[in-house]
Design a protein around this nucleic acid. Structure first.
Lengths: 204, 204
DNA sequence: ATAATAAAAACGAACGTTCGTTCATTTGCA
DNA sequence: TGCAAATGAACGAACGTTCGTTTTTATTAT
């Protein structure tokens, strides 16, 4: 065994998945051919079908194995007793870090939307929202409280703000000068907190 | 002339563009065939090439003629003398209305990103940002002023918040109960304003 | 250890289909 | 009569997938 407890077949299956994954991100699903996948994976085109029944099934495997839904979900779960500031800041940091580590996240979603009209991400959202909503509702600031805003809107504003952190980058490249980028997350958190907390709660 | 001053040739050219436009949005670019376009447009496949040199050129024409970059740009331009509240509120309203009127906007961008790796939208952003930045910098609230936040970050937070308004919807379908949706824009504006204005400025 | 054997994996030519595009021809309006 | 417009068969290339065969791997018997 050259790799950690992987049989030969399992290793080529993974190589095919990895090759397809890269090519789908580079070119999209339809524009990527099985022969391209085979070449990059270092196998013959027919050999792919020993491991996957179809091209579609490769994409499904990628969604299943590589979509970081499940990695992101626990990141936004709050520890009970956290203050609003801590919660928002930690959730933002975790989200941005994971998205930075996985620049493919949004692109996989886009491919899903554009070429399949499926929305696996809906599964995540429908999982996440009911879990996070009560957390948002119970948020207490040490010096004050949430302004009376519906939690669903708070959640949506939050996700939009921090998703956009990377959506913007994907759409237009570097929007900000690099020296500003490190501060900007804190500033985002600040704007957001300032926006949702009552005034007395914010002079911390 | 059946249509308003359009020659026969111009009308079929438009029919082809419209058919391709619909199909690209439904299926993506690569997954849409010229025969599908021809059928929906009501012409023979060969006839398409009397009006477009290639499939790519159809997409380029769609981008050129239908991408609402130029419609959105003037919407976010402020009238001099506007207060921060007025500016933000008007810009948000205009943006959301245009995106609502053109649900294809984001999907066209996604197709561009996924299947071409081109970013024509970058052209818009690079046009818009230098135009809007000074506006943001000069914003004055009637009862106060902007907190000291870099305008580029303000702009980014703003666009993210309101782009996400529709990105979320595209990704997961209806996130909010419908009766809440009409209020939510105002709430977004409120959160955002609350976030960027100094405290004394916000009791209006 | 070695040899025999069955199973899994790899191969690449070939299949039928569909792709984007071309072209010789016909149609229909000015 | 002339010319843009429309036609659909035809082209070569490429598509996803299948298939018969060979090679490699894992397992068992010796």
């Amino acid at each position: 065994m050259t790799e950690v407890n992987l049989s030969k077949g399992e290793r080529t299956r993974l190589a095919i998945e990895e090759a397809a994954y890269e090519l789908f991100l580079e070119q999209g699903y339809s524009a990527t051919s099985m022969r391209q996948v085979a070449e990059r994976a270092g196998v013959a085109v027919g050999g792919i079908y020993n491991h996957f029944a179809s091209k579609d099934e490769i994409f499904e495997a990628i969604i299943r194995n590589r979509h970081p839904y499940k990695q992101i979900l626990p990141l936004v779960s709050a520890v009970p007793g956290e203050t609003a500031e801590e919660f928002i800041h930690n959730a933002a940091q975790a989200l941005v870090e994971e998205l930075g580590r996985r620049p493919d996240f949004l692109k996989l979603m886009f491919i899903e939307i554009v070429e399949f009209n499926t929305k696996h991400v809906a599964g995540l959202m429908e999982e996440v929202i009911p879990q996070v909503l009560p957390l948002v509702q119970r948020l207490k600031s040490p010096a004050g409280m949430l302004r009376p805003i519906h939690p669903a809107i708070i959640l949506r504003a939050f996700m939009g703000m921090f998703f956009s952190y990377y959506i913007m980058e994907m759409m237009v490249g570097q929007v900000m000068p690099p020296e500003m980028r490190e501060d900007s997350l804190d500033t985002f958190v600040e704007i957001f907190l300032h926006g949702i907390l009552v005034d007395e709660a914010k002079d911390v």
